[in-house]
Each structure stands twice: as structure tokens, then as C-alpha cells.
Write a protein that binds this DNA or RNA. Structure first.
Lengths: 201, 201
DNA sequence: TGTGTTTTGTGCGATACGGTACACAAATAC
DNA sequence: GTATTTGTGTACCGTATCGCACAAAACACA
């Protein structure tokens, strides 16, 4: 994981011809469309714009590359979630915005990919424990973020913040699944809109 | 799709050495553990106890075999769902039983496979439209079944039966995802128990 | 300019994969 | 009993896969 800025002194040998975050971002699109198992290293390297040996040298084998990508995607998602939930407006408004942004992302053309964790990491869980562990970390982080937002809100304590977070997370899971199976963004938006008042009751 | 009973007259040639439903059931375990892409036809044939050419002759290529298996699994699931929802007790009790049975299935050792639709079909959706279509059919059938049960109940019409069904389905999706990622059955049970009154409010 | 270090890119090797051809076996129809 | 039909099992083909070896290239440093 090297810094992409030029602030640090250059290292010894031949410089890299790529930026780590850019590679992970391009690789992500392939993993997100095809899933881990069906994505070939050739495709991944082609999408990243570099050769297989460079990929292997930089990230290790396919599983490690997937884990790097999943962490990269997950951390950015959690950061975005935190940012929206820390914004202004009522908790209902902020939660609605979270769903709106998620739906935009999950139904993005041309593939309606859904969420990388729910849509591609889950399937590998029984056969790739390391992937399962990272996916779990990320889902926990997402729920913790939601729980903090509910705890900081002025909602009643009766459904506890943790319970509300599980519920909000469940709605997100369902949106991700339905999006990947081809649901229309409009339908998902009305579904999310109908669930926000239930979660925040 | 041949009948396994001996009621019909035997067909012309050499009889099959397997029962269709048994093969689909064994194949299902492999697809459910590994997903469509990672399951090799060799494994599938070995699990089914027959050779690849027999598999191809009976079901077509790997995608068609997966679709047969998915339909087989899905139809039995929908039938089981209908049966429980048509049973006795309040709608809360019947919905609780649905979740209880689903959780038992989804967290079954040794793989905690989750649901075949959510856990393995969804990932192939962008690259295999036929799989996506079948998965959609099944999710719709599940929601219709739930909707019928809510419509026949004495719950208020304010969250419409369709809205309640979407909500109940979302909870099922989330349970399936969490189970495949390793969640404990006990945690899923408390989650489901906490959601039933919300859905049936 | 020379030396050490790291990355790049061509190319390879071993394996696993999906799918099928073909000969043999087992049953029925006549 | 012979012909016909259907399923089984071995063996095979072409391809795609992952992962790596190796030499050339591009840099820092002396």
C-alpha cells in the first residue's frame, strides 16, 4: 500500500507505472460484475491496464487481490456512510439520503451490480474464510455506524439503537439483493421510503 | 423430468440408473456450498453419483443444470412457505415459524449455506440473465405467498399486505446473507423475533 | 559511469475445465 | 430372437486458467 502523492521521497528501484487506488478501482468493477470465482486474472489485469505478474507482485494471488479490493470498497463505503449520517437534518432525512445514494450506486448501469459485500463476497464465504472475515468486519462497521447515528438521535430508546441498526442494515441488504437481480431504482426508492418511518418510529 | 414412481409404463430403452429428484438434491448441496461459477462439473457429477455425459444428457450444460436445481430448490421452498403460512395460529406465530425453519435451513452445518437464491444466484445475475430470471420468479413467488398470508390475516390495511410482504422478505434476505457470512443461529433467531412484531404491527 | 534495486512484460508450464465422441450395456418392440 | 431405443462409462479434445521464471527496463545512489 504505497502513497500515490509525491510528498514522500521516491523509493529505490524502477517506479511503478500505476496508482494503487486506481488499480483497485478498476479491478473492483470486474469483481463486482462477475464475482470472485468467475473473474479471471487475465480480465482483472486487462481492466487494471497492467500485466499479471505486476498484479501478483503488488497484491499477491487472486484471493488477496479480491480482499484488497473488498477492503478498499468497504472502507470508502463506510466513510461515505459516516459522512452522510453525520450531516444535517433529521435522522429520517439522513437515513433516506443513505438509501438514496446506495440505490444510485447499486443500480448503476450497465450491470446493476448491487453491493460488493452482499452480491459477491457472501457467495465465497463457505469456501474462503478470509473473504468471509473481511465481509463480516465491513458489515459490522456499517451497523456500528448506523447504531451511532441512532444513538445520537432523539429517537426513543425502545427499539434500541442496535436493534434499529440491524433493521436498517437488513433493508440495505434487501436493496442490494434486489438491485443485483434487476430491480428498478424507482421501486427500490419507494421501498426504502416506506421503510424509513418504520425504522425511525 | 421423469416420474420416479413406477405407475407409468416404462419407456423404450435402457432405464436410468438414477432418480431425478435425488440427483438435483445432491447437486444442490454442491452449488449451495460453492456457488455456480466455482462448482466444477466434475464435482457435481461425483456428488450426484453419475458421470458427466449422463448429467449433460439429462439436464444440458452447467447453466441449465443449475437452473433445474434452482427451480427444484425454489419450488420446494415456496411450497414449504405456503404450507406454514396456511397453518394454524396467529399471523405472528406463523411468520415466526417461517423464520425459525428458514434459520435452521440457512445455518445448517457444516457450511451455513444461507439461501441458494440470495447466496448463489444473485452473484451470477449480471452475467447469466436466465439465472437472474428464475431467481426473480422465485423471489416474486415468495413475496406473493407472504402477501396472500397478510391479506388473509386480520391485520390493519394501513401497511398494505404487499408492503408487509416486502418487509418480511427483506428480513429473510438479511437472514440469508448473515447466515452465509457465518452468523450464529441464536443471533438470527433473536433478530427475527424482534422483527415479527414490527412487521405485524 | 557503474552498481544495486525494483518494476515491467514476454513467455511458459502444468493443471483443470467444459463439453463431446464413441463403443458398450440394458431395456423394450416386433 | 432380432432390431431399436435409450442410458452408461471411458477416453479424449481444445481451451482457459493460475501462477511464475527470466530478461530487459527504469530508477536511486555512489
Amino acid at each position: 500500500m504505497r502513497n500515490s502523492t509525491e510528498t514522500t521521497k521516491r523509493p529505490r528501484g524502477r517506479p511503478r507505472a500505476f496508482i494503487t487506488d486506481e488499480v483497485l478501482d478498476r479491478v473492483r468493477t470486474v469483481f463486482l460484475k462477475k464475482g470472485f470465482a468467475a473473474a479471471s486474472v487475465d480480465e482483472l489485469a486487462a481492466a487494471a491496464g497492467l500485466n499479471r505478474p505486476s498484479l501478483y507482485a503488488a497484491f499477491g494471488d487472486k484471493e488477496q487481490l479480491y480482499i484488497h479490493t473488498l477492503r478498499f470498497y468497504g472502507q470508502k463505503s463506510v466513510e461515505g456512510l459516516d459522512a452522510v449520517l453525520a450531516g444535517t437534518g433529521t435522522i429520517e432525512q439522513r437515513l433516506s439520503k443513505v438509501y438514496k445514494l446506495a440505490i444510485d450506486l447499486y443500480t448503476a448501469p450497465p450491470h446493476r451490480p448491487g453491493c460488493m459485500i452482499v452480491g459477491t463476497a457472501a457467495v465465497e464465504s463457505p469456501t474462503h474464510p478470509k473473504i468471509a472475515a473481511v465481509a463480516n468486519e465491513l458489515l459490522v462497521a456499517i451497523e456500528k455506524s448506523l447504531e451511532r447515528a441512532f444513538a445520537a438521535s432523539d429517537l426513543s430508546r425502545e427499539p434500541s439503537p442496535a436493534a434499529r441498526a440491524r433493521m436498517a442494515g437488513a433493508i440495505m441488504h434487501s436493496i442490494a439483493i434486489r438491485a443485483r437481480l434487476g430491480a428498478k431504482a424507482a421501486d427500490l426508492r419507494t421501498f426504502a421510503a416506506s421503510m424509513v418511518p418504520v425504522i425511525c418510529r
